[in-house]
Amino acid sequence: MKSVIAEDLVKTYRNGAVRALDHLSLDVEEGTVLSVLGPNGAGKTTCVRILATLLKPDSGRAMVGGIDVIKHPDKVREVIGLSGQYAAVDEILTGWDNLVMFGQLYHLGKKASIARAEELLERFSLTESAKRPIKTYSGGMRRRLDLAASLIVKPKVLFLDEPTTGLDPRGRQEMWSVIEELVKGGVTLLLTTQYLEEADQLADEIAVIDHGKVIARGTSDALKKQVGGERLEIVVESQNIAKTMEVVATISGNKATLDEGLRMISAPVSTGATALIETLRSLDSAGIHPLDVGLKRPSLDDVFLSLTGHAAEEKKEEEVATTGRRKKAKK
């Protein structure tokens, strides 16, 4: 069953001058993770906000948990959790205050709200700072608290908009393990990201979006295949370059290319590890000992490049991700 379905969503801003979503369609199978991957300005936040009932599309249809988002937003709100791009918690209040308040707003009752708040604080390693105002929290702690707030009543579908943007590597790692934990618990997750490795790490499926459209989708591996197979890469001493190029070209059946600076010879191969072993054998019998050797699978950056013809560059300098604050695009 599909837990999330978006069909032909169109959303424009400023009377049509900005087309944030341009017939975007996607779906998420129940209990799986879809990562919406795209550069800044691609339409990720707009898409999430529509699915989370915060925004009405100009046209198109969306269902979450089997409920029509446009017709029954109040029902959808009962089954979703949302953690937006910017941590949406009350800075002045403490972590404890925040979670108890949100629990009460979910109509848990005071006692149950407190119990749930303490449980979540514990789970996200925030117990120690529970009684401190949020403004004293680090970026990672804020994001974790924000995530905790979206999990107060176990949501069926969870939306995370760029959960690690602006975090340092450690914060990101922590967030990843928290998310992986959640996914094991069986939640359906739609997660947006600008980081290719994040999508690779967390998602069952990836939808690449650009200019408000899905330009490719599939598993991480399938997307990589779409770009072409693996590349064999060998670094050798200068005097061995010519001979190595010959060997590589013969075995791969493709023209070998040379990066002179790195003294790296590479060529696409279709047989993967077999080609690697064969090449090493031939080189060995020719008395050549490579300095480095490897099979490189294309990165998702390569995927983006080959899909769009341009690198995953930012569309506009409109958002500042590091401050964790919303900077309104006023132009």
């Binding site: 906000r49 989370a52 009932t53 915060l54 109040d74 709100r77 009962e78 979703i80 949302l82 937006g84 791009q85 910017y86 941590a87 949406a88 918690v89 009350d90 800075e91 949100f102 707003l105 979910y106 109509h107 924000d146 707030a149 979206s150 604050r325 919303r326 309104k328």
Partner: peptide
């Protein structure tokens, strides 16, 4: 509004005018 806090309130199953 600036902090996005309103987004959280709006995504809760509560009366929208609360």
């Amino acid at each position: 509004m600036k902090k996005g806090l309103i987004d959280r309130f709006r995504s809760l199953p509560i009366s929208q005018s609360a």
